[in-house]
C-alpha cells in the first residue's frame, strides 16, 4: 500500500540542501524523500549532524540565506520552495509550526508569555484582543499549564524548562497547524518531564488530527509515538519503514547498529554511538556513506552509492545488500 497523492499532506522529493562556504557549496542533505499523510506521526532519526534539523528548517523556509535548497517540498500539493517570502510567512505558524530543542532560549526573555503565544494569532487569525487573550488562556490550559491567567503575565525566566516547552507547544498549536515539526522536543529536559511532554504531544495530535514530524535521537520515543520512521545517515535517507519493521526487521546495517546499541527499548536510552565517526560534509566517501563504519561492506560499497529501493511495500532501504550488484554474504 503506497500513499496516494491525495492522501499526502507533506511531500518532500529529492530535497538537497547546500551551504555556501569558502571552498564552494557544501551539501548537508542530499536527495531526501519523505511523505506524510494527514494525522500521521513520522519519526526522523539519525546521529548528530546527519541533517535532521536542516531538513526541518527547509520545510519552514527558515534556513539562512547562505543555504541553497533544491528539490521540492509540497504541502497539500503546494510547492513551498517556490513561494515568495510573504506567501511563506502565511504558511509558517499557521499551516506548519515547529518547536525546538532548546526551550530555555527559544522564548523571548523580555516579552510576556501571553504576548508571545498570541503572536501567531496576531499574524494569522483575525481576533479582537479580548478573543485573543481568551484563546491564549485556552491554549495554556490545553498544554497543561496550571493557572493560565497568571502565567500569561509572566516572563520566560519565571518558568521551568518543561513549562517553557509547554509554552512553545501552545504557541505552535495556536493556529491549529496541519503539520507540527518537533525537533528533539525533549532532549534538553529531565526524564520525567520528557515523558509528560511526549504524552502531551500525543494527546494534542489525537485531538487535533494534525500530522507530527518527530525528530529525535531516541528510538524508544519513536517506538511509542510514531507509525513510520525515516532513518538518515550523513545527509541521506538510508531506511524508511513502518515502525514495527524498524524493530523487528531492520534492513540497513546502520539501523541495525542503532538498534543493537540500544539494550532495552523500554528504558529509553540515548543512542550509543556505533564505532567510528560520521564523515565530514566535505569528505563524503564516494560509495555508500556508511561504508567506512560498516562491518558488512563489500567492494562495490566503497565505489558506488546504493539507491533507496523498496525491499517490501512501504519499506525502502539504501544498501547494496538488498539490491542487484551487491553480493549477499
Amino acid at each position: 500500500m503506497t500513499l496516494q497523492a491525495t492522501d499526502t499532506l507533506l511531500n518532500i522529493s529529492n530535497l538537497s540542501i547546500s551551504f555556501k562556504s569558502d571552498d564552494g557549496w557544501i551539501r548537508a542533505v542530499q536527495d531526501v524523500n519523505l511523505q506524510m499523510a494527514p494525522g500521521e506521526t513520522v519519526g526522523l532519526v539519525g546521529e548528530s549532524g546527519c541533517g535532521k534539523s536542516v531538513t526541518s528548517l527547509a520545510i519552514m523556509g527558515l534556513l539562512p540565506r547562505t543555504a541553497r535548497v533544491e528539490g521540492e517540498i509540497s504541502l497539500q500539493g503546494r510547492n513551498l520552495t517556490t513561494l515568495t517570502d510573504k506567501e511563506l510567512r502565511r504558511v509558517r505558524g499557521n499551516d506548519v509550526s515547529m518547536i525546538f530543542q532548546e526551550p530555555m532560549t527559544s522564548l523571548n526573555p523580555i516579552l510576556r508569555i501571553g504576548d508571545q503565544i498570541a503572536e501567531p494569532l496576531r499574524m494569522h487569525a483575525h481576533l479582537t484582543s479580548r478573543q485573543m487573550s481568551e484563546r491564549v488562556k485556552e491554549l495554556l490550559a490545553q498544554v497543561g499549564i496550571p493557572n493560565p491567567a497568571r502565567v500569561m503575565q509572566e516572563y520566560p525566566h519565571q518558568l521551568s524548562g518543561g513549562m517553557r516547552q509547554r509554552v512553545m507547544i501552545a504557541m505552535a498549536m495556536a493556529c491549529k497547524p496541519k503539520l507540527l515539526i518537533a525537533d528533539e522536543p525533549t532532549t534538553a529536559l529531565d526524564v520525567t518531564v520528557q515523558a509528560q511532554i511526549l504524552d502531551l504531544l500525543r494527546k494534542l495530535q489525537e485531538e487535533s488530527g494534525m500530522s507530527l514530524l518527530l525528530i529525535t535521537h531516541d528510538l524508544g520515543v519513536v517506538a511509542e509515538m510514531c507509525s513510520r520512521v525515516t532513518v538518515m545517515y550523513a545527509g541521506k535517507v538510508v531506511e524508511e519503514c513502518p515502525v514495527d519493521d524498524l524493530y523487528y526487521e531492520p534492513e540497513h546495517p546502520y539501523t541495525q547498529g542503532l538498534l543493537g546499541s540500544l539494550p532495552d527499548l523500554d528504558k529509553r536510552e540515548r543512542l550509543r554511538p556505533i564505532p567510528g565517526q560520521v564523515p565530514p560534509l566535505w569528505a563524503m566517501p564516494p560509495g555508500c556513506r556508511f561504508a567506512p563504519r560498516c562491518s558488512r561492506a563489500m567492494d562495490i560499497c566503497h565505489s558506488t552509492e546504493p539507491q533507496l529501493l523498496d525491499v517490501e511495500p512501504n519499506h525502502r532501504v539504501s544498501c547494496w545488500l538488498h539490491q542487484k550488484g551487491g553480493t549477499v554474504s
Binding site: G93, E102, T105, L107
Partner: peptide, 26 residues
C-alpha cells in the same frame, strides 16, 4: 542570531516586526 528570533520567524512574523518588536528591546 538568537533562538527566540527564529521562533518569531517560525510564527510567520514579518521582518519589520521581528526587528522592532522581538529584537530591538533586547
Amino acid at each position: 542570531d538568537q533562538d527566540y528570533i527564529r521562533t518569531a520567524r517560525a510564527n510567520g512574523v514579518p521582518p519589520f516586526r521581528v526587528t522592532f518588536h522581538h529584537a530591538f528591546r533586547n
